[in-house]
Write a protein that binds this DNA or RNA. Structure first.
Lengths: 149, 149
DNA sequence: AAATTGTTTGGTATAACTCCAAATTATTTG
DNA sequence: CAAATAATTTGGAGTTATACCAAACAATTT
């Protein structure tokens, strides 16, 4: 049976801001520099530097000091979930009268507190939509019971 | 035109924990004692005491020291929103494969970050359901454009 | 190689929580 | 009704998540 590599996570392990960092780095692909993150996330480079260290210590990123960061295999798998969660929830909200922008903004505020279990159930119930409101939805790593019923 | 008394709020003014306190006190009706809140919310009475003070300073509660708290008119109006938000979101999630308990637990984690505007849009789009999964949904104070067009 | 730019470290701050111990007030009981 | 008990508040302190500034350090450019 096709098992996930990192099935142990609940989806609640990262704080809201760390979710922002990881999603941003993931979507950039390749090595990302501190300054770029800082200016896009509107924080001081020193703040970014510290957060990057924490994400690296937790195993999500490889950090070469003064050079930049890139995703670990685990970070990548996790970030895929983060992006899928964001898109599933945003898509959901657009079905209830919110515009794309409103839905994204709303979801960005609370997504860090929605569990992987809930996302999987919602995703399943929506029929695993491939297209979200702010990008494609990748279901490759989306394995859960209902898939095999 | 039937205007709301406290239309100025975004729904994001209270922290997650303060939302818990206010919902709890609201649902109790009447004067509530520190100890009761503490034991239900599983926190030290000193923590409750401090939080109650903050909610009173912010105008949501009347606090008579050593006697207990009850809702102000504003607190009441706000708590009605809080409960409605919780129930609308919980109901929404049960439509996507989550059980009542799962939906409530999930929503409790993030509801503080969902705006009043979003709740009103979702509520409107759902046709103002009267029955939630964990109680009645009160729409009395739920006035927004779409209601009158 | 010197100047500039980018990054990190150390220090400090705030908000939102939390608890413990001590002081205070209210209630119960003998 | 005074003394004991119970409830509440206050003062002090700690944690986590976030942020900034200033100074040190490293990399790049000139």
């Amino acid at each position: 049976m096709n098992e996930q590599n990192y099935p142990e996570f609940t989806g609640l392990e990262l704080s809201p801001r760390k979710v922002d960092y990881l999603k941003f780095i993931f979507e950039k692909k390749g090595t990302v520099k501190t300054t770029e993150i800082s200016s896009c996330l509107h924080v001081d480079p020193s703040t970014t530097s510290k957060t990057l260290n924490e994400l690296a210590s937790a195993g999500y990123l490889n950090h070469v000091p003064y050079r930049g960061v890139d995703m670990t295999e685990m970070g990548n798998a996790y970030a895929e979930f983060l992006v899928r969660r964001h898109r599933i929830l945003s898509l959901l909200f657009t079905h209830y009268g919110l515009s794309t922008e409103e839905a994204c903004a709303e979801v960005s505020r609370f997504e860090a507190f929605v569990s992987r279990d809930a996302v999987n159930k919602i995703c399943n119930s929506m029929g695993h939509p491939m297209v979200g409101v702010c990008g494609e939805i990748n279901h490759e790593k989306c394995f859960h019971e209902e898939h095999y019923h």
